[in-house]
Computed example of a mutant assay.
Amino acid sequence: MNSATGTSSDGSPLESMLAVAVSGMAAFAAVIAAGPLLVRAIGATVGRLVALVAGGPGRLATANAAQVPRRTAATISVLSLGVGLTSALLVALATVQAGAEQQIDAQFPAEVVVGATDPSSAEAFAEQLSADDRLVVRVEGDNLLVDPAPGADVAAVRAAVEQAAAESEDLLTVGVAGEARAEMENELSIASLIGLGLVGMTLLVAVVGVGVTLMLSVTERVRETGLLRAVGLSRPGVRMMVALEAGVSGTGAAVLGVVIGAIYGRLAVSALGLDGGPSALPVLQLVGLVAAVVVVAMLAAMIPAVRAGRVPPIRALQEA
């Protein structure tokens, strides 16, 4: 048993990945089951901060979120699933990239690595290349390591080595670190585009769910909104209250999703045997993801917020 990942080292990657997927589904099922408790915890942490910053509308937003804990918990659960998938993909890609870069650095201790058949061939080819002052040449066994001299153009150095190797009578193989890195980055870019596209659909559905949930909440709270307007809460205050309610839910879901997703992204990479290097945590990307989710959740609340702010106090009391 691999103690770092919790996956079996003797099982196949498919079995390990299946175990990670089942574990992830169980984790999100636990999040759904503990939803009302999470709502109270979010209200006690994020809600207090929002109330401190936004004053009255912030306190009302936190209270509204806690008023229907099961509905708020359902919104948080769905949104955290989308965020979790996205953060898992980001962490997995960052870890794979870190491992690939470490392998490239190990395989290419210089910008250009020339493989010779024996040390004597490497020494002879090194003497030939040393005549070019653009090249810094050293020999390690059967390998010839070539770096650009200070101020030399990297592309020109590569071309010079490749041309000399092609003209040589010895059987030489030329490897370029830049080409390996470019190929690796291209593969990761394609994988990230496909993955983020699929995950983006899940996240979009979750954000739409936030808007629908708030629309239902606003509709059910017509009398309450009317009373708030009657006692002096302005239209902008009502709109801010609804938007902050979405912000509280979005913040809780984003933080929860990022934490769970980061853990399972690392586990998935380990299960597939792609963790060739140290764990990598894309902190800036994950922070940006949390901020983006909160902003988008508040934007999704725009229509319900505008609708709540437009209802006159007297009409709201009559319709209740």
Rank of each mutant, 00 (worst) to 15 (best):
P109V: 09
R138P: 01
E169C: 00
D147K: 06
V96A: 05
A149K: 08
E179V: 12
E101N: 14
S189T: 13
S192M: 11
T86D: 03
L196K: 11
L90R: 06
A160Q: 10
V161P: 00
L85N: 02
E123W: 03
D147L: 05
V113E: 01
I190N: 05
D142T: 15
A106L: 14
E183Y: 08
P109R: 11
D133F: 10
D118Y: 07
D105K: 11
A126E: 07
A180V: 08
T117S: 15
L172E: 07
S120H: 06
Q97Y: 07
V146I: 12
L81H: 03
A182M: 11
G195W: 05
S87P: 00
A160H: 05
M184T: 14
L145D: 01
F108V: 07
L145F: 01
M184G: 04
A110S: 14
V161M: 09
A149M: 07
V96W: 00
P109S: 11
S87L: 04
P150S: 09
A160W: 02
A88E: 05
I104P: 00
T173L: 14
S130R: 14
V114E: 04
D142I: 10
L85Y: 03
V174Y: 08
V157G: 02
E183Q: 12
V112Q: 06
M184P: 00
A149W: 05
A94Y: 01
E185D: 15
L193A: 12
P148F: 06
E185R: 13
A166F: 06
D142R: 15
E187A: 15
L145N: 02
A177S: 15
M184V: 12
L85K: 06
A191Y: 04
D142M: 10
D132R: 12
D170N: 12
E185C: 02
G82I: 01
R181E: 10
A165H: 02
L171G: 10
A177F: 08
V113S: 02
S189P: 01
V114C: 04
Q102R: 15
V136S: 12
E162M: 11
P148G: 08
V114T: 03
L193I: 05
L135F: 09
T117H: 09
Q102L: 14
L85G: 02
A106R: 14
Q102W: 07
T173R: 13
A156I: 01
F125Q: 09
A149Q: 07
E111A: 14
I194T: 12
L196M: 13
G141E: 09
T117R: 13
L145W: 02
A131F: 10
G84W: 02
E111R: 12
A131W: 05
D153M: 06
D133C: 02
L90W: 03
N143D: 11
V174L: 11
A100N: 08
T86Q: 08
E140K: 09
Q97H: 13
A149H: 07
